[in-house]
Structure formats: C-alpha cells, structure tokens
C-alpha cells in the first residue's frame, strides 16, 4: 500500500516535470538551436553593449597603465577587500562624497574604469558622471576585478 502511494507520488511529480522539460527542449532547440546560453550571453554583452565609452580587455588596458589613471568604481568596502594595484577608488554610489578626488584628476588624462566584472554597470555609470565633469578619455575595463583575479594578477589590499 505504502509503495503504491509512493509510486503514484513519483508518477505525479514526473508528469509535472515531464511537460516543462519536453517543451523547453523543443522550444529552445527550435528558437536558439543550441543551449550555450551563458557563452552566447557573455559574447553578446561584450559586443552589443551600446556604450559610448571604449571597452577594453585587461591586456589592452595594461599597455596603458603607465599613462592612465585606474579607477575602481565599486564600494569602499569592496575596494578595501582587494583592488588592482595603483588604482584609486571612486565609488559610483557614493560619488558626491568623492568630488575632491574627482577634481584632483588631471582633465586630459586617460581614465580606465573597472568594477566587479562583466555583470556590473558601475563603471558605465561612473563614466557617465565623469563625462559631465569634462573628462574625455574614458575607457572601461569590462572584465573587471573578477577577470583580473581569474588571470592570477596581483591584488593589493
């Protein structure tokens, strides 16, 4: 009796799971052909971001580190937990309290901004704000600190 109950329960569960799974497989196969959503999403987010700022990889950015100012757009807390050496912290969310730092930046210098990784938009928001202060050379290192860590590059605390 008990076994029968369990069987029914499993059968019911299977019937509830069966249709979503079949539908999802069929639908996604027809619409998207393959299931590498994440890989394609990353590719997309890098190539189709409608950004007026130049987006550079870590390697590209590194070539300009000597002449650029590296800005960490994350919060103070995250910055203190670990940041790219020689970067300065201007938290996007606390921008107004960092105005003195902004005024210290030379107007014509190249600014390279990064935040967490490809998911975060703090860099873009900061870039927008800095643009209103007259900075023209703003790049975004879109791989962020996450990409930096993945490449085993040094972190400063």
């Amino acid at each position: 009796m008990r076994i029968k109950f369990n069987n029914n329960y499993i059968k019911d569960l299977a019937s509830i799971l069966f249709f979503p799974i079949v539908f999802s497989l069929v639908y996604n196969f027809i619409v998207y052909k393959d299931f590498n959503f994440l890989a394609r999403a990353k590719e997309k987010s890098v190539h189709t971001t409608q950004s007026e700022f130049k987006e550079v990889t870590i390697e590209e950015a590194q070539n300009y580190f000597s002449q650029a100012i590296l800005i960490d757009a994350r919060s103070e807390e995250n910055y203190l937990q670990g940041h790219i050496p020689n970067s300065i912290n201007i938290p996007t969310k606390n921008f107004d309290n960092y105005l003195d730092k902004v005024f210290e930046l030379p107007q014509d210098s190249l600014l390279i901004i990064y935040c967490e990784g490809i998911h975060c938009n703090l860099s873009h928001l900061l870039a927008e704000k800095l643009k209103t202060f007259g900075f023209k050379n703003i790049w975004i290192m879109y791989e962020g600190i996450e990409g930096w860590k993945q490449k085993n590059l040094p972190i400063e605390k």
């Binding site: 799974i21 999802s24 299931f35 959503f37 890989a39």
Partner: peptide, 21 residues
C-alpha cells in the same frame, strides 16, 4: 556553466507550467 545553461533551459518552463497548474 552547464548548470546555468540547464537552469535557463528548464526553470522558466517549469515556472510557467506550475503557474498554469
């Protein structure tokens, strides 16, 4: 990554069917 792709595949449909249920 595999798990992310599987979730993207299944979760919305599961939600939809449970919702209609």
């Amino acid at each position: 990554e595999f798990f992310v792709n599987m979730s993207v595949l299944i979760i919305p449909w599961l939600e939809l069917f449970v919702g209609f249920g």
